[in-house]
Design a protein around this nucleic acid. Structure first.
Length: 577
RNA sequence: CGGGGUGUAGCGCAGUUAGUUAGCGCGCAGCGUUCGGGUCGCUGAGGUCGCCGGGGCGGGACCGGCCACCCCGACCA
């Protein structure tokens, strides 16, 4: 492709309030163009990257027996009424109507693939079966943001598998998990599999694929030793205990406490470590009322865990609600308090002589002890895991890492089979529901993720596997010889099947180099009067990933040296500033 | 949906306490120049100042409403 003819040019500037790296770089490089929040045009350069990502995904899905098909984006709303998701997903659904017929723009395809499967899958002999599609999804995100990372219309590969048994699903699920890891690896990304909750109302297992990037929007907890990765929302870890000697229970004391509501002020006032203070937070649990959660003062409550524990939506109680329940903000304590139920995190189970409020402003208890002074309704895991906690699997140290979720796989079980009466007949002639799995990977998001994970201050550094072109041929200067040589090289490389972007513009060297850096093609070949004098061209690698480039470079070299080109031998040199 | 911010040429921005014909840089078109890290000069085209309403001799600027976009949060099968 001649750059002079390319639809979509690079730009120096991106809006200053657009802060996400992928949006800025992809916009500036001419890969995408924004139409509205979370809605983008994919320009030819971006389309090439997109197609390469899709190709990798297709190869990996095909390798685990997936069969590609294409389902519609327009779904009759009746399908969604069958599963009730027209209501439960209402805020996200785009709906449209024609006459009195109502449709949903598909945010996902369980409602289409299940009735489809019911038309063809009847016998255990038809199973297992797996189909996938690469298609545009529509979700009315309450807050589209971060460029391609969270769009309202976005590309997705979704795959659905059908099985005779849970065991068969489990085995297949593991195969797909590996296929997913292959996809990320081939896209040059470092991916972690994280157990994830299937949501607070579901017991179904699911896994997320997290890509490690400093700019990630999610937090994951990784074990430095065994590599166990967990989503912070559900991460488990062993709290490291401050060195504690056995203490005997001291008598409970009520003391005046002129302090504010923070733990730090308690530390200061009573001259004790935060780990000896009882932190108690009150939540309003949907349909159940106020509940108190107590935890060690130096730790934080993980609200997702609280939500999962109660199986209901929760939020912190408002000062107003606390007042009505006769709870003194900052001085709430389970000691001597019958107003609401209190639960406790495991972290306080073996602690003695704790400091806590006394349910009255400016009064604290010292030496409160579990069992003697208060008895929590239950002990559970409510703690938010932090760096420094110990891995629940191997005991090594855990670390927090930022990550982008770039894929998600679920064991659906029979939820959709039951809704659409998807049954098969087993060997004994019995009818059973088909067990389903589903596997999603956001391919447009993956493109944004690669930009986030692989760039420098000058632009994107595309891994060779997904780069829009493999070679960026740049001519410097307007001399006839240079143009003639560059034209020849361009022609030869194309004829040899090398994907090359040829910057044939009459522009200054600086501009051409800056554009090449921004576009981020792995290998740059420069032709100029200087290289001509040496009867050579210059190779410049966009990234330091040698192994990958050595192969490409030698392939290109081979073509050029063995071709008709008189420009040999080739000197590979780094340019100088 | 709550909080904060921004809307002026294709892009990035300036425009003071209200005052003629709304500026600058990039980009675009033309001519010349230069050619290894966003060359330089001259010329030119390009604008319902987000939309609607208000008071005012006069509004890009003030007041009210709405819309869009960005960021934080809520949310994210």
């Amino acid at each position: 492709m001649r750059y002079s003819k390319l639809f979509g040019k690079t730009k120096i500037d991106a809006p200053h309030d657009e802060t996400s790296i992928n949006a800025r770089l992809l916009l500036r490089g001419g890969f995408i163009d924004k139409v509205a929040a979370g809605i983008y045009n994919l320009l030819p350069l971006g389309m090439r990257v997109f197609k390469k990502i899709n190709r990798i995904i297709r190869e990996e899905m095909d390798a685990v027996g997936g069969q590609e098909l294409l389902m519609p984006s327009l779904h009759p709303i009746e399908l969604w009424q069958k599963t009730g998701r027209d209501k439960t997903m209402d805020e996200i659904l785009y709906k449209t109507r024609a006459g009195d017929k109502e449709f949903v723009l598909g945010p996902s395809h369980e409602e289409t693939v299940t009735p489809l499967a019911a038309k063809f899958l009847r016998s255990y002999k038809d199973l297992p079966m797996c189909v996938y599609q690469i298609q545009t999804k529509f979700r009315n995100e309450p807050r589209a943001k971060s460029g391609l990372l969270r769009g309202r219309e976005f590309g997705m590969k979704d795959m659905y598998s059908f099985h005779v048994s849970k065991k068969d699903l489990d085995e297949y699920y593991e195969k797909v998990k590996q296929a997913y890891l292959n996809v990320y690896h081939r896209c040059g990304l470092e991916a972690y599999v994280m157990s994830a909750s299937g949501g607070p109302f579901s017991q179904e297992l699911s896994h997320e694929f997290a890509i490690k990037t400093s700019a990630g929007e999610d937090t994951m907890i990784i074990c430095k030793k065994c590599n166990l990765a967990q989503n912070l929302e559900i991460a488990e870890g062993k709290v490291t205990a401050p060195n504690e000697k056995e203490e005997s229970e001291k008598p409970l004391k009520k003391v005046a406490a002129k302090r504010g509501p923070s733990i730090e002020e308690g530390v200061k006032l009573h001259k004790i470590p935060a780990s000896k203070i009882l932190k108690t937070v009150i939540y309003l649990v949907e349909d159940k009322g106020l509940m108190g959660i107590s935890i060690r003062g130096d730790l934080t409550i993980n609200e997702s865990k609280v939500m999962r524990y109660f199986g209901k939506k929760i939020r912190p109680a408002t000062p107003d609600e606390l007042g009505k329940a006769k709870l003194a903000v900052g001085f709430i304590s389970p000691v001597d308090n019958e107003n609401i139920p209190f639960f406790a995190d495991f972290s306080i189970k073996h602690l003695k002589n704790l400091c806590t409020g006394a349910n009255e402003k400016h009064l604290d208890y010292l030496n409160a002890n579990i069992g003697r002074d208060f008895i929590p309704k239950d002990f559970a895991d409510f703690v938010e895991v932090k760096s420094g906690f110990e891995c629940p699997k191997c005991g090594a140290e855990l670390a927090e890492e930022k990550a982008i979720e770039a894929g998600n796989i679920f064991k659906l079980g029979t939820k959709y089979s039951e809704a659409f009466d998807l049954k098969f007949t087993d060997e004994a002639g019995r009818e059973k529901y088909i067990i389903m799995g589903c596997y999603g990977i956001g391919n447009t998001r993956l493109m944004g993720t690669i930009a986030e994970a692989s760039h420098d201050e000058k632009g994107i550094i595309w891994p060779k596997t997904v780069a829009p072109y493999n070679v960026h041929l740049v001519s410097i200067g307007a001399s006839k010889d240079v143009i003639k040589t560059a034209d020849e090289l361009y022609k030869e490389m194309r004829e040899a099947g090398i994907e090359v972007l040829y910057d044939d513009r009459d522009e200054s060297p600086g501009k051409k180099f800056a554009d090449a850096d921004l576009i981020g093609i792995p290998l740059r070949i420069v032709v100029s009067a200087r290289t001509l004098k040496e009867k050579s061209v210059e190779f410049k690698e966009r990234r330091a990933l040698k192994a990958e480039l050595v192969a490409l470079k030698s392939a290109v070299e081979k073509v050029l040296t063995e071709g008709r080109s008189p420009h040999t031998p080739f000197a590979a040199g780094e340019h100088r500033r």
